[in-house]
Design a protein around this nucleic acid. Structure first.
Length: 491
RNA sequence: CGGGGUAUGGCGCAGUCCGGCUAGCGUACCUGCUUUGGGAGCAGGGGGUCGCAGGUUCGAAUCCUGCUACCCCGACCA
């Protein structure tokens, strides 16, 4: 175990917090509930952004940017949407400060806005107000736009990355001529998120739709991916909403169809946030700190030189540079830690809790034997290996680590997914074991709420293959059920 | 918003009950020497209006009053 680290066993929340802080990902700021994302944490976000952005563009989307502020009146246009967000909005009421008689800075009461501005908690309203101007004809559709932005939701309780008052995300907002086209878009983006989670984050996810209770405010259908964390709690990792014509009607977005008929357009929105970094941490990390999947690690390989005397230092670092160059030539992200201010043992420990997938140590002994010491973060194993053929070996290992993290996480999820038909067993598993519980449900919000009150478990999703799955009776009410849904306690 | 707790060098804490000399410890930081294949050792050194405002007192980190911030547990949520 790393020095000063809580273990998962001892205190899971503290373990999580320790990793965020000690791995230098983020810290709490002077602003309540808002974090500073530090360079190493932001580098991970940039890796995520790069991969996602490419996938969005490959599926035909373009980036744009809409205002941070939304006029208050926009919020009264879509009733369900307002109800969902009203309680957690930051509101701008004035536009100026001044000095009072004591020289203190105060809000200038004369500078009151005639209409208050809402700091966006999400951008549907401002975007749909804009789309009205963009859409006249069926030829203007579809609009496939994504925005990388920050949003603010005034949360009661916050946790680094998992829930902060301000967070970074992307939000896609699309407009379509027909319902099937919009539905197809919502499903397509769920697929993009799934691919990203599994192939890049090495985090297995369940695809499904939300129940009415858990649905996005203003959506007709919310698709989601849900991941299982190491403490047995579920994390909603991404959502894609089919919004129907709700926003088009609220903001009067109409087009003339080929048949010369005036129609409302169909909408989707979809988003993932910096919360994914929390999911990444809780999927793979261990009691020695962060573990990063190679595809998202800012440094895939770190080289630590070992030396005593000056001439050794020069020779070893020279070799380190050579290896770095060679690895970079095949596209590997390499950090040569040539700081003379820290000793090797310190560097080993540091890169370990920062989660770098592979570490190469080179010392005088290696120069003589033409070897390096190669250590894996995921298994914490190390071996001496020949410098000859190193880059092939590293490439293979990075791929192997990526796959092994995924299969380890998948195995964990499988071991912590239980099909349950008995109410007492349901309560017992939710309370004592956690994980996903697949159980029959009668389809009513009433039952869902009662289960939540009694166990704190919610329906994370209704699996996409729900319609074809087995019939049964609701684990709580005994009424008929068309299939099993996924229950869990959630973040 | 309900319940509990905390506020003292960068960080983590002791001291507060029972007021009293220059506010202490660990760590981090700085300098020097020895070290360097898993978080180095020794020596020396710098850094704190004790959360804020008021009060009691010869004297307040310590007692009293008010305020603020943060943390944990719930309810709300990506």
């Amino acid at each position: 175990m790393a020095k000063d680290f809580a273990t998962r066993e001892e205190d899971y929340s503290k373990w999580y917090n320790d990793i965020v802080l000690k791995a230098d990902l983020a810290e709490n700021s002077a602003v309540r509930g808002s974090m500073v994302i530090k360079p190493y944490g932001y580098a991970i976000w940039e890796m995520m952004q790069a991969a996602l952005d490419k996938m969005f563009k490959d599926t035909g989307h373009e980036n744009a940017y809409f205002p941070l502020f939304i006029p208050k009146s926009f919020f009264s246009k879509e009733a369900a949407h307002v109800a969902g967000f009203a309680k957690e909005c930051a509101v701008v009421t004035h536009y100026r400060l001044k000095n009072d008689e004591d020289g203190k800075i105060i809000v200038d009461p004369d500078a009151k806005l005639t209409e208050e501005l809402i700091v966006r908690p999400t951008s549907e309203t401002i975007i749909w107000d804009t789309y009205r101007k963009w859409v006249k004809s069926w030829r203007d559709l579809p609009i496939l736009v994504n925005q990388w932005a920050n949003v603010v939701r005034w949360e009661m309780r916050t946790r680094l990355f998992l829930r902060t008052a301000e967070f970074l995300w992307q939000e896609g907002h699309t407009a379509h001529a027909t319902k099937p086209e919009a539905m197809e878009e919502a499903e397509k983006m769920l697929g993009v998120y799934t691919t990203f989670a599994q192939e890049f984050m090495a985090m297995p996810v369940l695809q499904g739709v939300k129940t009415e209770n858990e649905r996005f405010a203003g959506a007709l259908e919310t698709f989601c991916i849900e991941a299982l964390m190491q403490d047995g709690k579920a994390l909603q990792a991404g959502t894609s909403h089919f919004l129907g014509q709700n926003f088009a009607k609220a903001f009067d977005v109409k087009y003339l169809s080929k048949e010369n008929k005036l129609e409302h357009v169909w909408a989707t929105s979809w988003g993932v946030s910096t919360r994914l970094i929390g999911g990444l941490i809780m999927s793979h990390s261990d009691d020695s700190g962060l573990v990063l999947p190679p595809k998202l690690a800012p440094h895939q390989v770190v080289i630590v030189p070992i030396y005593r005397k000056d001439e050794e230092r020069i020779a070893v670092i020279e070799k380190g540079k050579e290896i770095k160059k060679e690895l970079e030539r095949v596209g590997i992200r390499v950090k040569l830690d040539d700081r003379d201010t820290q000793k090797p043992g310190y560097k080993f420990a540091e890169w370990e809790f920062k989660g770098v997938p592979l570490r190469i140590a080179i010392g005088p002994r290696d120069l003589k034997n033409s070897t390096v010491e190669l250590a894996r973060r995921d298994t914490l194993s190390k071996e001496f290996t020949a410098m000859e053929g190193l880059k092939e070996k590293v490439l293979d290992l990075l791929e192997e680590i990526q796959e092994s993290l995924y299969s380890r996480a998948l195995k964990f999820r499988e071991e912590n997914t239980n099909s349950v038909d008995n109410w007492d067993e349901f309560k017992d598993i939710i309370k004592n074991k956690g994980g996903f519980v697949m159980a029959h449900w009668d389809g009513t919000s009433e039952t869902e709420n009662k289960i939540k009150d009694e166990t704190k478990a919610t329906i994370r999703s209704i699996p996409l293959d729900y319609q074809d799955s087995e019939e049964g009776v609701c684990v709580f009410s005994g009424k008929p059920s068309k299939g099993r849904v996924v229950f869990a306690k959630a973040y």
